[in-house]
């Protein structure tokens, strides 16, 4: 059995003629927490969609456990997705269902478990994210951090092999952020899963990720452990880690000369 659960090779993808990814290579090791970092619009979330089979690459391949995702038919993709759990940026909880029903949803859809077992499992998952006491609440009654935790409980409902997180820290207060960081690491290790986090929050990600990819200009601009990247001399990595406003990623969007725009 290979060490890598997910392999991305020479991946190119784009909308229309513009290429967003121009030959991406990534490997995600079993049992590890890997992060994909990069500026807004660099195509980080698109990589998750490509892994989940929601979109197809123009060329190259994404394979999970040796199976090429985009070669599968719909039932094959659904079979692969049953091994995955995904946490969306804002939770994407079903607003017409309670917290309990949201977590029970994948169990009801994919198993024939009796109601008493489902109840126990839902309460266990909610307990893991610290929200057992909130099982009766509706999504509208939850704070952003709580909604994210319920979505996490739902994502791990069927004990997936792969857990994907799309911007899990966006818009959270420091306490909720610390809670989510801790949960990502703890759940990954407890479930023996492989986690992929798409984020641009440097401090949090560097504190718990095992391996980090930096995506810029459609390619992997840098990769390595947090320690290696901290010591990196690459201008892009330095600009990103130290939040410098100007550098390889310019402050100004490409535009005609300032004088000509102001008719000076």
């Amino acid at each position: 059995m290979s060490d890598n659960l997910i392999n991305i090779q020479n991946l190119t993808f784009g909308y229309g003629k513009e290429l967003l990814h121009k030959g991406i290579n990534m490997e995600f090791q079993r049992g590890k927490v890997s992060a994909i970092m990069g500026g807004s619009g660099s195509g980080k979330t698109t990589i998750l969609k490509l892994i989940g089979g929601q979109i197809k690459p123009k060329s190259g391949s994404v394979s999970i456990d040796g199976q090429v995702v985009h070669d599968q038919n719909l039932s094959g993709i659904y079979k692969l997705r049953r091994k995955m759990g995904m946490l969306f940026q804002h939770g994407a909880l079903f607003t017409d269902l309670s917290v309990y029903e949201n977590v029970a949803f994948p169990m009801r859809e994919h198993t024939d478990l009796p109601e008493n077992i489902i109840k126990d499992l839902v309460l266990m998952k909610l307990n893991a994210v610290g929200l057992r006491g909130a099982y009766k609440l509706m999504p509208t009654e939850l704070s952003g951090g709580m909604a994210r935790r319920v979505a996490l409980a739902r994502a791990i409902a069927l004990d997936p092999d792969i857990i994907m997180y799309d911007e899990p820290f966006a818009g959270l207060d420091p306490i909720s952020m610390a809670v989510i960081c801790d949960l990502i690491r703890t759940l990954n290790d407890a479930l023996g899963a492989t986690s992929i986090i798409v984020t641009h929050d440097v401090a949090e990600t560097f504190s718990f990720a095992d391996y980090i990819y930096f995506v810029a200009d459609g390619i992997v601009a840098a990769e390595g452990s947090p320690k290696q990247l901290m010591a990196s001399k690459l201008p892009f990595v330095k600009q990103f880690i130290h939040s410098e406003k100007d550098g390889p990623v310019p402050f100004h969007v490409a535009a005609p000369s300032y004088n000509s725009d102001l008719a000076l």
């Binding site: 989940g52 929601q54 659904y78 079979k79 997705r81 049953r82 995955m84 995904m86 969306f88 940026q89 804002h90 994407a92 909880l93 079903f94 607003t95 949803f105 994948p106 859809e109 994919h110 979505a151």
Partner: peptide
């Protein structure tokens, strides 16, 4: 709104 709040995508990712 289900589409805008990614609920339909979440369902797809749950193989539903």
């Amino acid at each position: 709104l289900m589409k805008a709040t990614e609920q339909l995508s979440a369902m797809e990712m749950m193989a539903v």
